[in-house]
Design a protein around this nucleic acid. Structure first.
Length: 825
RNA sequence: GCCGAGAUGGUGGAACUGGCAGACACGCAGGCCUUAGGAGUCUGUGACUCAGGUCGUGCGGGUUCAAAUCCCGCUCUCGGCACCA
């Protein structure tokens, strides 16, 4: 017996009911099944910050539609959720409110999990992972050791961001405009022993593989390409004029090498001390270096900062022409790129030009423009276009592009240097002097040195930890943690007290989802090979570089270690836009935050989902509108009333009469089905898919208005297809209406309906007639009309004739079954 | 500065391969229903208009029978990178 639908749509009641039923029935649980094609739909897991924000709702709603859509299409869909649960805010909460990070994080996870469940998302909750629990991070540690043994993890001294007030190292992301994000003091640089992953070993592959990712947005690929920053050039050694030393420089413009008039070293260059020892103006140089060191990173590396330098008193020799050139120090040369030294060609590099003008250094044109009007005396900017080499010894007269190759060959022949590829990409600094992260499983022993600790997990101490910032990180202060025995010799030893960057934890979570409860290994190769790669990954574009590059690096490295079959983790990537209010990103400081919890409470999850999907296409930013939410809610109410009104008819037996109105409604139903199907499959255009459903509902209302005795068969088909199409978007109301129309099974287990191609064709079509490109008439003609007939009809039309007047018909263009354009003049 | 994306009614957005600009929704206006509506339902809604039309997709040109869509030159907005030699 089918229950009568209530007159009013009460989302809260039905949403809670169906969420319970789905969970009880295990509707969203999946296992490997070779009988079906698999589909891995993944959304970027959240940081458990406290409660969901609208960006989460958007991200997870989009993913849910994709997952439900592919499920209905017969795929075995993996759709998991978890928590990126290590990180700084948990420690801040500990300091501020005295709550343990573990407790704070777990409470947040519990609350946000409840909120995700309220949204009716189709996750297999049996696969939930949280990176902060030992059953996960022991495998993060294990993977670290695999990289360590493969030579991909190493420790070296590096300049890091240091907050003098918090007495701790900060991640680059935690430095906001040169200041500490927590206390706002100015961040300085400090040399410390740090752990790195050798991501640079994969620079070329990370770059080349981008070509194998047609399912990624061009924008993201370009951002990664720029971040990797590959550039080809040549490294050339310039001998010092006095003594034995040499200074190597890197250049991408060897064609300008005869135009070098001086050389600039970074103040951090290793040779600076030696040069300074001989310099007459030693004190001034020291002052200069101190001054540059005081400039913070932001100004130091800004193109707008004034270029400052000082002469060292020493000279080097240009190996190509034997000329002596002065060696300068300059604030604009980066110690961390290339060799930390550059050759300066003021005529053909704008930075060198500005520097030379400021310090009155000589200029020499070595590439002449096609106009031939370049002159050192009159130049106001460097000439960086192509041209012909002049003043360049044996290379004079060559085109500069050709000269690049010739000069490189010459340099290599004469052993002055060699071709080299440089990258902007740096190795990934993964160590953090933090408590709430995965401890790096390394032990230091006086006898054995650095020893990997295979006895995993290396547990974070949960008690006896002092979170107050001080001279040492919380872990370094915890005696019970630090003091251990050497895994190799059994003697007394100390633990590494750094923890791993949280990006390490999130670089492999998509692999753990394939086999989340395995306590023998990080994941079984078999299960990972069944599920990987991720067919659709969805998340914010803010992760375009960091997370997405790290995850790609990890997957490649694990592939090379034989742990996974795939090289690239994410087949298709959708970067969703931000949620804005009043034109700005929602933020507490702007006071324009809309709380998803309140929206769900007031309108229900289906309304929230529908509004977010309808208001903008997924990649674009979405402007929040309270009235738009009302509109989405009204639409659901409209469907509810329609089905409630027709409920008797729907469950009634009997065939009715199928006339014109029925045929038209049926046509629109199947046309809508086709459009919704295509909008989702081709472009994830949920907004236009929903608008098509709205049009169908409007048509159904008109049918109900116009037809006295509606045909039960037509009505039933329309309503059932409508509910099926609605199911991925608004799962609760669809389920309720599905059950109210006499179905036992869940709407979410139904196959996606196929449209009837015969139903969508019409006998009559409307053709537009233009005269000189302007629409003058619309003709209703038989669908099978020939071009000649159409032309004839168009010319004969009364209104068209009046526009032709007496003029000559010069040309008639017929677009079959669509349009006729009559050119007169 | 370089790279990328975008600019369409009062608003969010449609328009797939060059072929009816403004679908759908919001807002607004009006009719019906109602004791009442901030509910529902139906209709209208780019601008100008001599009521026949004319103009109209950031600006200026061009190609074409036909341009929001293609080409050339700009302006502005957003995002990323930012002295990478």
């Amino acid at each position: 017996m089918v229950e009568r639908l209530k007159e009013r749509y009460q989302p809260k009641e039905i949403e809670e009911k169906w969420q319970r039923n789905w969970a009880a029935a295990g509707l969203y649980k999946v296992t490997e099944d070779t009988a079906k094609p698999k589909y891995y739909c993944l959304e970027m897991f959240p940081y458990p910050s406290g409660k969901l924000h609208m960006g989460h709702v958007r991200n997870y709603t989009i993913g849910d539609v994709v997952a439900r859509y592919y499920t209905m299409h017969g795929y075995n869909v993996l759709h998991p959720m978890g928590w990126d649960a290590f990180g700084l805010p948990a420690e801040n909460a500990a300091i501020k409110h005295g709550i343990k990070p573990s407790v704070w994080t777990k409470d947040n996870i519990d609350y946000m999990r409840m909120q995700l469940k309220q949204l009716g998302l189709s996750y297999d909750w049996d696969r939930e992972v949280a990176t902060c629990f030992p059953d996960y991070y022991r495998w993060t540690q294990w993977l670290f050791l695999q990289l360590y043994k493969a030579g991909l993890a190493y420790k070296k001294k590096a300049a890091v961001n240091w907050c003098p007030s918090c007495q701790t190292v900060l991640a680059n992301e935690q430095v906001v405009a040169g200041c500490c994000e927590r206390c706002d003091s100015e961040v300085v640089h400090k040399d410390l022993e740090q752990w790195f992953f050798k991501i640079t070993a994969y620079a070329d592959r990370l770059l080349d593989n981008l070509k194998k990712l047609p399912g990624w947005p061009e924008k993201v690929k370009i951002m990664q390409e720029n971040w990797i920053g590959r550039s080809e050039g040549v490294e050339v050694a310039f001998p010092l004029a006095e003594g034995e030393g040499k200074i190597s420089i890197f250049t991408t413009r060897p064609d300008t090498i005869y135009g070098v008039t001086y050389m600039v070293l970074a103040p951090e260059h290793p040779l600076v001390e030696e040069l300074m020892a001989k310099a007459p103006n030693r004190e001034e140089i020291e002052k200069f270096i101190q001054m540059v060191n005081k400039q913070d990173e932001l100004t130091r590396t800004s193109a707008e900062t004034e270029k400052l330098g000082i002469f060292t008193g020493s000279y080097a020799v240009n190996p190509l022409n034997g000329e002596q050139i002065p060696i300068w120090l300059g604030n604009y040369v980066l110690a961390s790129y290339g060799t930390g030294a550059v050759m300066a060609v003021p005529t053909h590099d704008q930075r060198d030009f500005e520097f030379a003008k400021k310090y009155n250094l000589p200029l020499r044109v070595v590439i002449q423009s096609p106009e031939g009007d370049l002159d050192e005396e009159t130049m106001t900017a460097a000439y960086v276009e192509d041209g012909i080499l002049v003043n360049s010894g044996p290379f004079t007269g060559l085109g500069n592009q050709e000269a690049i190759e010739k000069i490189c060959d010459y340099i290599e022949e004469k052993n002055m240097g060699s071709r080299k590829v440089n990258y902007k990409l740096r190795d990934w600094l993964i160590s953090r002097q933090r408590y709430w992260g995965a401890p790096i499983p390394i032990v230091y022993c006086d006898k054995c040195g650095t020893v990997p600790d295979e006895n995993l997990p290396v547990l974070l101490p949960l008690d006896d930890v002092d979170f107050e910032p001080g001279k040492q990180s919380p872990l370094a202060k915890s005696k019970s943690f630090v003091e251990t025995t050497c895994p190799s010799c059994g003697g007394p030893a100390r633990r590494e007290t750094d923890t791993m960057d949280t990006f390490v934890c999130s670089s492999w979570y998509f692999l753990r989802y394939a086999d989340p409860n395995n306590d023998e290994e990080a994941f079984s190769r078999e299960k990972v090979d069944y599920w990987m790669s991720v067919d659709q990954y969805i998340g914010g574009v803010e992760h375009a570089i960091l997370h997405l590059m790290y995850a790609r690096f990890f997957t490649m490295a694990l592939h090379d270690l034989g742990l996974v079959g795939v090289e690239e983790p994410f087949e298709n990537l959708l970067t969703q836009g931000m949620v804005l209010k009043d034109g700005a990103k929602m933020s507490k400081s702007k006071g324009n935050v809309v709380d998803p919890g309140e929206i769900i409470e007031k309108y229900g999850a289906d309304t929230a989902r529908l509004f977010i999907l309808f208001a903008a296409p997924p990649e674009r930013d979405l402007e929040w509108s309270d009235q738009g939410v009302e509109g989405a809610h009204r639409f659901l109410n409209r469907i509810w009333r329609l089905v409630a009104d027709w409920q008797n008819l729907l469950t009634a037996e009997g065939k009715g009469q199928a006339g014109k109105a029925e045929e038209a409604l049926r046509r629109q139903t199947h046309q809508t089905l086709k459009k919704v199907q295509e909008d989702i499959a081709n472009r994830f255009q949920f907004n236009t898919a929903i608008s098509a459903i709205m049009e169908l509902v409007n048509a159904a209302y008109h049918y109900r208005e116009e037809v006295e005795n509606p045909d039960p068969a037509t009505v039933r088909e329309t309503v059932e297809l409508l509910i099926l199409m609605l199911a991925p978007f608004a799962p609760h109301i669809a389920e309720e209406l599905w059950s109210a129309t006499g179905h036992q099974d869940s709407v979410h287990s139904q196959p996606w309906p196929q449209y009837d191609p015969k139903a969508i064709v019409s006998d009559e079509i409307t053709v537009v007639v233009q005269v000189n490109g302007k629409v003058r008439e619309r003709l209703s003609v038989p669908a099978e009309i020939s071009d000649d007939e159409l032309k004839e009809k168009a010319l004969a039309a009364e209104k068209v004739q009046s526009f032709i007047g007496g003029k000559d018909v010069r040309k008639v263009i017929v677009i079959p079954k669509k349009l006729v354009n009559i050119v007169v003049g």
